[in-house]
Write a protein that binds this DNA or RNA. Sequence first.
RNA 1: GCCCGGAUGGUGGAACGGUAGACACGAGGGUCUCAAAAACCCUUGCCGCAAGGCGUGCGAGUUCGAGUCUCGCUCCGGGCACCA
Length: 855
Amino acid sequence: MSRYSAREAEPKWQRLWDERRAFAARRDESRPKYYVLEMFPYPSGRIHMGHVRNYTMGDLVARFKRARGYNVLHPMGWDAFGMPAENAAMERGVHPGRWTYENIAAMKGQLRSMGLSLDWSREFATCDPDYYAQQQALFLDFLEAGFVYRRNSMVNWDPVDRTVLANEQVIDGCGWRSGAPVERRELTQWFFRISDMAGELLEAIDGLERWPEKVRLMQANWIGRSRGLQFTFETVGAPEGFGRLEVYTTRPDTLMGASFAAVSPDHPLARALEAERPEVAAFCAECRRMGTSEEALETAEKKGLDTGLEVIHPLDPEWRLPVWIANFVLMDYGTGAIFGVPAHDQRDLDFARKYGLEVIDCYVAGGSDARVADVAFVPPKTERVRYVALHTGNGVMTGEEAIDAAIAHAEREGYGRGVAKFRLRDWGISRQRYWGCPIPVVHCGACGVVPVAKADLPVKLPEDVDFSAPGNPLDRHAGWSRTTCPRCGAEARRETDTMDTFVDSSWYYARFTAPDARTPTRVADADYWMNVDQYIGGVEHAILHLLYSRFFARAMHRTGHLPAKSEEPFDALFTQGMVCHETYRAPDGAWIAPEHVVKGEDGAVRHAETGVELAVGPSVKMSKSKRNTIDPEAIIAEYGADTARWFMLSDSPPERDVEWTTAGVEGAWRHLQRVWRLAGEAEIAPAGTEPEDGEAALALRRATHAAIEGVTTDIEAFGFNKAVARLYEFTNAIAKAGGAGIGGARREAFEVLARLMAPMVPHFAEELWARLGHRTPLVDLAWPEADRALLARERIVLPVQVNGKKRGEIEVEPGSDAAAVEALALESPDVARHLGDRPPKRVIVVPGRIVNVVV
RNA sequence: GCCCGGAUGGUGGAACGGUAGACACGAGGGUCUCAAAAACCCUUGCCGCAAGGCGUGCGAGUUCGAGUCUCGCUCCGGGCACCA
């Protein structure tokens, strides 16, 4: 009995698909289009199992939709700018461009070996000058349209390497290479005005019906619309120009409990005091010895400094509050200044206890007289509590009502106004790095910031760069940065910042519709192919990448690069789970890669070379740092791409994490072999034979058509693991189908099996299809249709419960009425046994599902 | 710290509020074989000889009926604006 050989079959079918240009997408108004896109990879050098999972799912969707008659666009490219290329340049002296393109070549070969139905003719890398030229053109259009501006903002500064660090490069507050404590430093940087679109980006989330609810929630919370009170404190003793202090609060109902005001160390008032007073300067410097990440700021120990200044409470001119500088006040949110209410906010309470500030209770839960001690009482927004406060009025009301009352009071008395604010901040895109898209502007001493003329694009990265010192090589590159002003012709300096790589990935989906266009997009192609019908990627991109893309699509529409329908570019989104693996650790703490691990008969896990016993850790996301990765190339070489694909789709639901196990892969391999063997052993009628209508043949035909129905439904609902389970059941049904004279039904069954498996294991399905005697490939065949007549159930077994516990079963005719079912159930001996002589109080009949007898 | 998820047999998981454990892995027993592998057949949530009882992270609640809904926890994971 011959085995199925993936090694022979897979390259053969890949070649055939290539020769037929089976997956090249062309505009065709006669068919509905379907654009399926997986998040494009960063060219790190090798594909990993996360890619295999992502692209297997996307390919399944693409092939399925093709079979269902859609004109499918399924492109692939490379998110090719980024820090790892610069790190490689610093560590190994290889040019980032060369490193990147070599990685792309290697990874493309690996992706090709997976047999994906990709249109490679549309491939591009974001570091291709053709791509970033168009990105620069977009930038200039955005600049003209007012979506871009410059302002100062904070970066992580490594004082030893004298370079800007990414948050990832800040480890425990220190630079990853120098080890020096990181400081916050202010730089002038470029920003996109995404916050101007906060309201519409938030409202449009409602229309994203085919996005996961969790992603919509995360985006909504990220944009974070809040309603609150903005008002002004009169200051006492402040430096010139700081007579008033603007604050914003989402809980104006607690204003009567205020006992201090606090400003961010980056607030202009703090800056002014810093210039005059050494102790303030020392404190602010200490606060800045910390990264810029919100996590670092929020989890840091709360510290403050009393400035000695005071503000006047808006409800009582005699009431003075001390002004502190506090490290937990964020300059980027609200006004960078707050008032503290220790009794009704836990963070304020901790701060007040630490520094001996007053704690003023003024609202109490449930009308009790309990005083706040170590736990602040936060008045709930939707439950009623007793308020005793001048500005809200006394009474029992919800937090929401009290906030409304407080805002109304402020507006009536004239000390403040109700405002809506968003948490969303403008998108800073300046990066002080080489391997990114140059920002196409020039700094002229006379004219200021001047855009480069579109005719002069692209502003290309220089090839000759020096990575021997930290910092931005563009900055040091005298020749490249020296230029002339496009406006006045005087000597000028190029902008040496490059763009955030999130910019590159914010519009690549649009570029795929016309990758050769001499403008960012081409109207006819964008109109035809957009939107992305199904976008698939990791949930780790749920906020930033997707939000930036939504912003970009809107800005591209307003600058004439995308149609109005594409303001939301992704019609449906699916976020897949991660690929995990067990971790192994030697006694010395070193992580050991799975290929160096052997599992003994005794259950012990040992290092293959040294024999030392290893500790087995939990299954976590595959990562280089824990060395728990499995190389897809090795798996494909050993088992074939189809086995890897089948395993990726089996068992775990696509949205959940999946654990890679050797046993699972072998199970997948065995299943393909089993199908192959069955097709060789079974008595199958010649091609073209009609299925028989005998009892045994009909039973198999019912299984066949139930499989079509079930697999189709499951694929459409992204229930790939369930579709695979149904295919197992179907295979078992074929194997069990007995008797002579069912050769035609068997033919139908195997043909359907091949066609249903095709989107998942395309090479195997082609090979099986050919083995069944077909000369034309499966790739262009339509999806099978289930015969409704074969799907009807013949008899129905209903479970019968007594008091909610299953006690027996009854068999009923389909379509029996409730009274008949009830009578049958009460006659059942199982029910009688549990009823005894008690009469039933109630009988619940759910037609077609269940009977429950209540006594 | 804040936002969002998740938790079901030895394992991955299935289950319109309606028979908990489909399907698969593993394990045990058997068939075939000189033997092994492969393959095939049977068993397999836990306790119990059985009758039966108990079971979906923990604690409450709603319901004729809860893995599923509500509230309160625990643990694990993702994101937190310069990783991609």
